[in-house]
Amino acid sequence: NPLPDGCSLLEIEHITQSVVKSHIETSQYSTDELKRMMWTLYSPEETRSYQTKSAEMMWQQCAIYITNAIQYVVEFAKRITGFMDLCQNDQIILLKAGCMDVLLIRMCRVYNPINNTLLFDGKFATPQLFKALGCDDLVNAVFDLAKSLSRIQMSEEEIALFSAAVLLSPDRPWLTDVQKIHKLQEKVYVALQRYLQKGGGSEEKLAKMVSKLPTMKSICNLHIDKLEFFRLVHPETVYTFPPLYREVFGS
């Protein structure tokens, strides 16, 4: 792959190391911890106790859980070479628009394809556990995406570079310095391509990763739609959600 104008191999290597190091430092669970947790499942009784929660309670618990994860995404972004050189307006916009994308990509680390479970609040849960949310379509779409992302079998390095490239999307609305972000994304994308090539991964693997972007976008939109509907029905509950959640996913 040709290098972007004015970019050296050394710089691509530096970006690769910076993104991978940031990913490892800002992943909530290490791969060893996840291996140990992978078979810690919710019992049928525990699943039923989640299913019998009120929608308000379940929404609030999920909002708290996602908010905790968002903080790790902010720290991931801050450690990516060049991100903190962007103006604050663009840093905020990229995080608001892209943090759910990063969480969806990272989700394949905490998904067990053998029993279709996802790590939630310390144990691995089936889609049925989230019934009380009243968003079965959103939950099923998330689990289906986790399944298809896990089939690609991305390494930690590939997850790191792919999520950084998605976060640095220059096509987000209201960005100030689109050109600067485009250059940054291009370097991270070339770093991902070169990493895949070095590992013998084909262009096909990259194409599979990129093919998930439309699904990720529709899940992000569905999440906002569900949140807006929930806010209409339970405005007082949304007001108790963590302020960071409301800041990121608010208007």
Binding site: K78, I92, K96, E247
Partner: peptide, 20 residues
């Protein structure tokens, strides 16, 4: 700034991996 107070704070804070 007011609208994204927490994001601004998080972006300014120097959090070490240990803090995370």
């Amino acid at each position: 700034k007011e609208k994204h107070k927490i994001l601004h704070q998080l972006l300014q804070s120097s959090t070490s991996p240990v803090d995370l």
